[in-house]
């Protein structure tokens, strides 16, 4: 059994894993289409050498147009309301669109189509509509891209009933969760961290689907629970390694799906360790991190041996200058300090 698993697992980057999930789902279901700004590129041109000029701004969708053509891998004008809304309308009428919103900070130019149309349509229509739409979008600071291209504001979407929100931290999770998101009949916001695209990891071959709504314990431990999201899972794992060297056993819970939230896994870990640190790259107010703290306060207070610690960026926009941006992003050092503080 072990040998079979090892044989089936090879290494891909997070970018390649997402590309593979898109390719497999597009092969499996002809109603799956991909659209967004320059998801292939140069759609004006008949010149073969221009085909797939970009394949997405960071190359995530590269190559798909060769297999599926420009009808299904569709460049859009830079009009997010128009094409995100078209994704909603297409989903309501029988397609399964994957729409790329280049950066999550661009939600401001299409938010109505997401929160007033896609998210509410099923409820407003008394359950008589399905909106099987995926919006892939980039999150994350650390790219020196400044305030409008570096947000991790997924909690905005968690706030809205009708939406599901996913934020994978590893290549395997990216593949499995994207496949699940595409097959899901509700609108899903799929958040890809731009600093993870080149990270490699084992990814199962062929069909691989991870159900939405399941957190994963990425490292087991008994002294303190560290709940983290997306790239912050890697920082939490690094912190856990350093804590281990100091004789502290940290458990790292990767939420993976932010809506629905896997409350059970989080609560079980808190009950085991009695201490909670939440690490989140999103803004600190009204966030998934504060949700996890609320969960602990309302349902696990009697198990907590210390106040909950949050490790998040400050309540500021993402800065440009490298020294400022590095100070902004939650660091493994701050996570170590927060975990140690819960231990008194």
């Amino acid at each position: 059994m072990t040998a079979m698993v090892e044989e089936a697992v090879r290494t891909l980057s997070y970018r390649e894993a997402i590309n593979e999930a898109l390719r497999l789902e597009m092969r499996r279901d002809p109603t799956v289409i991909l659209m967004g700004e320059d998801v292939t590129g140069a759609s004006h041109s008949e010149d073969e050498s221009h085909l797939d000029a970009w394949g997405g701004v960071l190359g995530v969708t590269k190559g798909l147009v060769h297999e599926f053509g420009r009808q299904r891998v569709r460049d859009t004008p830079i009009t997010e309301s128009g094409f995100v809304g078209a994704g909603v309308g297409a989903a309501a009428t029988g397609l399964r669109p994957v729409v790329e919103l280049m950066f999550i900070g661009f939600m401001g130019v299409c938010l109505d189509q997401i929160v007033n149309q896609a998210a509410k349509m099923r409820y407003m229509f008394g359950g008589k509509a399905r909106i099987p739409l995926v919006i892939r979008t980039m999150i994350g600071a650390g790219f020196r891209a400044a305030a409008q291209h570096s947000d991790s504001i997924y909690s905005t979407f968690v706030h809205f009933p009708g939406l599901k929100v996913v934020a994978p931290a590893t290549p395997a999770d990216a593949k499995g969760l994207l496949a699940a998101a595409i097959r899901d009949d509700d609108p899903v916001i799929f958040c890809e961290h731009k600093l993870l695209y080149d990270m490699k990891g084992p990814v199962p071959e062929g069909e691989y689907v991870i159900p939405l709504g399941q957190a994963e314990i990425k490292r087991e431990g008994g002294d303190v629970t560290i709940v983290a999201i997306s790239r912050m899972v890697l920082h939490a794992l690094e912190a856990a390694e350093r804590l281990a060297q100091q004789g502290i056993s940290a458990e790292v819970v990767d939420l993976r799906t932010l809506s629905p939230l896997d409350e059970t896994t989080v609560l079980e870990s808190i009950r085991k360790t009695g201490r909670l640190v939440v690490v989140d790259e999103d803004n600190p107010r009204c966030s998934v991190a504060t949700d996890i703290a609320t969960l602990a306060a309302t349902q696990a207070l009697e198990f907590l041996n210390a106040p909950v610690k949050l490790v998040t960026p400050p309540h500021t926009p993402v800065p440009f200058s490298p020294t400022l941006e590095d100070a902004y992003i939650p660091s493994p050092e701050r996570i170590v300090a927060a975990a140690r503080a819960t231990l008194g």
Partner: peptide, 9 residues
Amino acid sequence: PLACGAGLT
């Protein structure tokens, strides 16, 4: 935008 989506379908 929704109408464009239905048209695209």
